[in-house]
Structures are given as C-alpha cells and as structure tokens.
C-alpha cells in the first residue's frame, strides 16, 4: 500500500511498513544512526536517529529506526529540539568513547560538548550490531550482552574462551567503532586466530596441499554442517580448489 508523508516539508510517497529512517535514507536525508543496519532488524539502542513527528495532532520525539511511517505523518529531522537532544546524546557518547573517529566526526558536526560520564575510554558503544549479526545473519549465536546498566558489556558467554565463536569476523566487519578486533598469529607450524575483544582463540585450518592458512577450523565445520559442501573442498585454499579440478561440489 502506497502512503504519503511529509519529510522536512517535502511530500514523499512510501510503502506502509517502511521505517522513517529507511524513507529518509532513500530520499538522501541524513539522520545520524549508529545501531541500525539494513541487514538487521531495528534495535533502537543509540537513539541518535530521534526525529520530531506530528501525527493525528500529536507532536512527539521518536526514534526514526523503529517508527513505521503512517499516512499523513509529518516528520522533521532537524528541529531545534531534535538537534539539542542529539547534541546531548553525542556529548554522552563523546565522554564514553573519546577516541572513536565516527563519534569525533559527530561531535564536530553537531558542535557537541563532552558531558563527563562515569565510563571513560571505551571503544564499544553497546549498539549490539555484532551480537545481532552473529545471531541473525551468521547464526552462530556466540555473542550476547552481559551485565546491566553501567556494567553492561558485549561479549561471548562468560566473556572468554567461547565454544560457539567460529572466528568468522562478521562482528569486526560490522562494528561501527572498531571495538571488535581480531588478528591471526603464527605459532610454530600452526596459525591461531585471536578474537582480541572476545578473549577467544581458534585454531586455523591450513590448506591440505600447500599449507596456506585458510580459515578457522570451527568456521569450516560450521559451514560444512549447514551448506552441504564437501569437506575436502573446504580444506583447500582458493588457489588449490581451482587447481584441483575447478568443479566445486554442490
């Protein structure tokens, strides 16, 4: 069903069920957001995407990522009230994560001043993207939140030596602040993938033919169990896969 809303005064037609943030992105209207991602369901944690909505005679501040559009809705993304709330939120974030580039950029954009908060020098903003990607996209469910309120952290179960983490690195890829990190380490003949943030180490599979490190062994078994790909195929590096026949078994 096609409906019409007014976005910053301009008429926009959109589909029912779309979120305000989705519509705004499509129209090129910038709304800052740290916890939303096209591939994931809305979470509504960072609240930077607040906008002012007038609907059925009621004016209120809502999060654009979790609010669906309704016919006749009027959305303003840059009213003084919205900007002042965003400024406060960015100020709070700036105190928590002063060294994160994306937040420094927001501080400049909004001219926000740091509001001294108890937690200092963190990199993680607890947006939950890593957790949701791990659960909803990868399906490994290795990550979760632990603790509540001020002691809330993202991590693996018991915060170390995860038995579920497959070392795929999706969390590192999706993290907006660079809080999630990993690196590979050579130890003698073996290679180890160290998930720094999750305090977990995984043995890396080496190619059967030319001994090149490919991917963590747990990732191999994870994929093999779900995708019906020949294990022999997965135990070779991309070069050897092509060389060994060039016919990947489906």
């Amino acid at each position: 069903m096609q409906i019409t809303i007014r976005l910053n005064g301009k008429k926009v037609s959109c589909a029912a069920g779309e979120t305000i943030l989705g519509v705004a992105r499509r129209c090129g209207v910038r709304i800052p957001s740290l916890c939303s991602h096209e591939a994931l369901r809305p979470f509504g944690a960072c609240r930077l995407c607040v906008v002012e909505v007038t609907f059925l005679g009621k004016q209120q501040i809502v999060a654009a990522c979790t609010t669906h559009v309704s016919d006749g809705m009027r959305v303003s993304t840059q009213t003084p009230r919205v900007v002042s709330i965003r400024k406060t939120l960015i100020g709070l974030l700036a105190a928590r994560c002063p060294e994160v580039p994306i937040i420094q950029q927001l501080v400049c954009e909004y001219g926000a001043t740091t509001i001294p908060a108890p937690k200092k020098n963190e990199r993680c903003i607890l947006c939950g993207l890593c957790i949701r990607a791990c659960r909803d996209i990868v399906g490994a469910e290795a990550l979760c939140f632990a603790g509540k309120g001020q002691s809330r952290t993202a991590g693996v179960a018991f915060l170390r030596d995860s038995q579920e983490c497959i070392g795929c690195g999706t969390c590192v890829l999706i993290c907006p602040t660079g809080a999630a990190q990993l690196h590979d380490e050579v130890r003698g003949n073996a290679t180890v993938r160290v998930m720094d943030t999750w305090h977990t180490e995984l043995a890396v599979q080496h190619c059967q033919s030319d001994k090149v490190p490919i991917a963590p062994q747990r990732l191999r078994t994870f994929v093999a169990a779900r995708r019906k790909i020949d294990d022999d195929f997965l135990q070779r590096c991309p070069t050897c896969r092509v060389a060994s026949a060039g016919k990947p078994n489906r």
């Binding site: 509504g44 944690a45 960072c46 609240r47 930077l48 406060t88 939120l89 709070l92 974030l93 105190a95 928590r96 509001i115 001294p116 908060a117 108890p118 937690k119 903003i125 607890l126 939950g128 939140f145 603790g147 509540k148 309120g149 001020q150 002691s151 809330r152």
Partner: peptide
C-alpha cells in the same frame, strides 16, 4: 542499559 540516554543519562 540497552538505550544510550537511559544508561548514560541516569549515571550522569
């Protein structure tokens, strides 16, 4: 601690 304003705001 899920959303930023409540987690950081109450502490501040």
């Amino acid at each position: 601690g899920k959303c930023l304003p409540c987690r950081e705001g109450t502490a501040v």
